[in-house]
Design a protein around this nucleic acid. Sequence first.
DNA 1: CGGGATCCAGTTGGATACTG
DNA 2: CAGTATCCAACTGGATCCCG
Lengths: 135, 135
Amino acid sequence: MSQGNSCVSVVGQQARACTVREALDRVGGKWSVGILVAASQGPVRFTELERQVEGISRRMLTLTLRNLERDGLLHRRVYPTVPPKVEYTATPMALELYESLVTLTAWAERHRAAITEARAAYDREHADWTGSRAD
Amino acid sequence: MSQGNSCVSVVGQQARACTVREALDRVGGKWSVGILVAASQGPVRFTELERQVEGISRRMLTLTLRNLERDGLLHRRVYPTVPPKVEYTATPMALELYESLVTLTAWAERHRAAITEARAAYDREHADWTGSRAD
DNA sequence: CGGGATCCAGTTGGATACTG
DNA sequence: CAGTATCCAACTGGATCCCG
């Protein structure tokens, strides 16, 4: 969510990293993907999102929605009824982004086990024994 | 960097979002990608990283390295010399991840202009005029 | 119903000093 | 050289109240 991207004045290989960050800064947020996924299925209302994206607070939902809207990933449609009705829809650009994420999803699935094991191994090794052996 | 991933007990479409998050949680950090990119070129030392990943602090470099190592994305090799020498190398899994990120990079490049414009438009519209027109 | 405003706790992350 | 430890500022995010 932080927009302070210092991709300027970066040279060489790190320039690649910056471009990646541009994308990550938009979906890196804890809730962005969840919202995007929900909105990709079709227009979705505020309260629906609140239910579908489990664990999100009202505040974060609003904030994330605003950011996604600002970046042109969501379109917000307000029906001037009472009580009010607001629908969020994923833009074509967002759908493309979603498609791009499947590669990442595939990677995560492919290596899920390996990562879990790597962590276990690391934690085993670095078990932080302050007691180094009491004879 | 936060490991508190609540991918459990989530149903339906949101399960997809969770898998994506698994991947994002590993590269979502502000510095992960920068380090990964640098390490993908071959073994790289601590101080080299500190220079190549511009703007990173010593603390964050250490922390991010530890996380990447723990997830099995980096291999850490220590040479018992004096002064000490430590080399970080991207694992095959990390290289695959890097490959997966190019899709995202492509997306970012493709829509960079559109996003910038979307933001400008949004900011223009929500310029927070408390003064609604003084005719 | 769909949010905005506010308050506050927890976390992130930079700067710096110290160590083997 | 390659970290670790500490302090502190900024940001994140939940809870709550209010409003159209």
